[in-house]
Structures are given as C-alpha cells and as structure tokens.
C-alpha cells in the first residue's frame, strides 16, 4: 500500500478518534448534583423504582423503605441498608464510580434493581 494512502487512512482515523474523544468529553461532566431517591422494597423481591439514574460525582441519597426485615446491598459501592419492616433507612454517598451497580436482597441474592452512574 502506497505511503500516501497509508497517511490518508491514518489521518482519517486520527480525526475520527479525536472527534470521538471530544464527543465523550462533551457528553460527560454533568455530575455534581444532589439527588434523592425514595425507594420501596416489597416482599424482598421487587423494588420501585428499580432503576436509579445518576451521573458521576453526584451526591446521592437513597431512602429505602421495606416491608421486610433484612439487608439491601448496593454493589460496587458496597453499601448495606439494614432495613426494618416499615421503617426508612437512608445512606448518602458520592457517586464517584461509573457503573451499572446491582442492588440485591443480600440474604437471597435476589436482584432488586440497579443504580446507573453515567459519566
């Protein structure tokens, strides 16, 4: 392959990747907000709402009310909500990691929902 064609291909790819990097950067940096989620867990099997959307570096407060005693576990952030039937349990944390973080009923491993932290 001639040198000119290699250079043209290289230039096209460099432009594409630089533009992609700019696109990612522009779409990011939306965090830094204070978010509060009021969540209800029923029968240790369902959670409403089941998806909690946030951006990186948001300060997130999750208030969980369960009709059953037990632990609701937020993975990746490793936060345990020790719930008592009818009582609200709250945790506040900084969402410094992007993830699709699973939320489970710890004793059974049953999936309840997801905290989605986007860039």
């Amino acid at each position: 392959m001639s040198r000119t064609r290699v250079l043209v291909v290289g230039a096209v790819l460099v432009i594409f990747f630089v533009a992609g990097g700019i696109l990612i950067y522009v779409n990011g940096h939306q965090g830094g907000q204070n978010l509060t989620f009021n969540v209800t867990v029923t029968g240790a099997t369902t959670m409403k709402p089941d998806t909690l959307p946030a951006h990186q570096n948001d300060t997130v407060t999750v208030n969980i009310t369960s009709d059953t005693d037990g632990e609701v576990h937020l993975h990746e952030y490793d936060i345990a909500f020790d719930t008592r039937a009818g009582q609200m349990v709250s945790h506040t944390f900084k969402a410094d990691k992007t993830c699709s973080c699973d939320i489970e009923w710890e004793s059974t491993g049953h999936p309840l929902g997801t905290l989605v932290v986007s860039p």
């Binding site: 696109l23 993975h75 990746e76 993830c99 699709s100 491993g109 860039p119």
Partner: peptide
Amino acid sequence: MTLAAQILLHGFGPRYDLPIATALYLYA
C-alpha cells in the same frame, strides 16, 4: 461483597461496564 449468582455473563462475576451512550454508538 457477595456474588450475584444469577449473573452468568463471562462465565462468572459481576459486570462493571455501562452500555455505550446512544450518541457515541451512532457516531461509531
């Protein structure tokens, strides 16, 4: 940290990545 046994992605283990943002997917 406990394992979510239902997840069978990659054979075992939780998944840490997010789906690619729509704008980026369309761009790519």
